[in-house]
């Protein structure tokens, strides 16, 4: 029995010395504790900032420019992806001065259609979830193959999920090795590492997983798949921003942050921007380092922008569906 468990838990471990991608081998990070009460209190404080008039308009435009417009459904088709791409390129009528979204985020099989629709210009990036999204409960070989294919089909960004079983079993080296291996096959594509914080549960776990992902080569760390509740929350994002800050001071590398799932309205989105501004500063207020993973958020933001511009609310039918 013991042998059987061992065989299941530690299969074909990747050699963790030096990865082809250049990430150094795994070294257990110093664990950093997070105090839940104070972290949640601090996160709540950001929602009490009062964002008005010009600041609100500028903030909402920034939110659009940081959006990974997402469709991740079993029933996604090229037609649905086309809707999404067009919406990302031009979210609202030109008169509103709304920028294009940062990216569209789709399943690997939809990457080629998104790429075709968006063409070769890289205004709106194509992001692909991969690595057995959302569970990640697949062999590493096929997960690597998925990444190669998505990248080959034209994905600019890969949103991978970490191996939660390995993490929860305490096999952090394995989590690291897999991320590094995936980073190695990403080629020029940027790698976003989804921690699925709703399954890691504690902030201590989130902080540790953030560090492992950044050590292993993540360009972005991302909260959630959107398939598990809770998805992104302000406190969990704060904990990850603090991990990014620590990593920056230690290594000089600016890692990006992507909260995903559960951010549905403008007010919530602005609270996230406030948190980024007051935790990491101006350098992170850019789509290169901060993204929102969302689908329904976009039209709520556009409605607010229209109200600030025209002075009145419009019905939802005046805003095209993605």
């Amino acid at each position: 029995m013991a042998a059987a468990i061992k065989a299941r838990v530690v299969p074909e471990r990747m050699v963790s010395s030096v990865q082809p991608g250049g990430a150094a081998g795994f070294r257990a990070p110093n664990p950093v504790s997070v105090d839940q009460v104070m972290a949640e209190e601090r996160a709540a404080a950001f929602t009490r900032r009062s964002i008005k008039s010009g600041a609100k308009l500028a903030g909402l435009r920034m939110v659009v420019s940081m959006m990974d417009l997402t469709t991740l459904e079993g029933k996604d088709t090229p037609g649905k992806v086309a809707y999404l791409c067009r919406k990302a390129l031009q979210p609202a009528d030109e008169g509103y001065g709304v920028p294009h979204c940062a990216a569209v985020c789709v399943y690997p099989n939809m990457v080629r259609y998104a790429r075709r629709f968006l063409g070769d210009n890289d205004q709106v990036k194509v992001a692909s979830v991969a690595t057995g999204f959302p569970s990640g409960q697949y062999p590493l070989r096929t997960r690597l193959e998925e990444v190669r294919r998505a990248q080959g089909d034209g994905a600019d960004e890969i949103d991978m999920v970490i191996d939660r079983p390995a993490f929860l079993l305490g096999d952090h080296a394995r989590v690291f090795d897999e991320i590094a291996a995936i980073k190695a096959v990403c080629g020029p594509a940027h790698l976003k590492v989804i921690l699925e914080t709703g399954e890691l549960v504690t902030y201590d776990n989130v902080r540790l997983a953030s560090r492992i992902a950044m050590d292993a080569g993540a360009d972005f760390i991302k909260t959630s798949t959107g398939k598990i509740q809770p998805a992104a929350t302000l406190p969990v994002t704060l904990v990850m921003l603090e991990a990014i800050r620590e990593f920056f001071f230690e290594t000089g590398i600016r890692v990006g942050m992507k909260p995903a799932g559960g951010i549905r309205n403008s007010k919530q989105a602005l609270a996230y921007l406030v948190m980024v501004k007051e935790t990491l500063g101006d350098d992170w207020l850019t789509p290169d380092l901060f993204r929102f993973g969302a689908s329904t958020l976009l039209n709520d933001v556009l409605m607010q922008i229209a109200r600030l511009t025209d002075g009145r609310y419009q019905g939802s039918d005046y805003f095209s569906l993605p």
Partner: peptide
Amino acid sequence: LNFGNKWDYAPA
């Protein structure tokens, strides 16, 4: 870290 006024809050 750069806490400048890239996105400043309007008076409230």
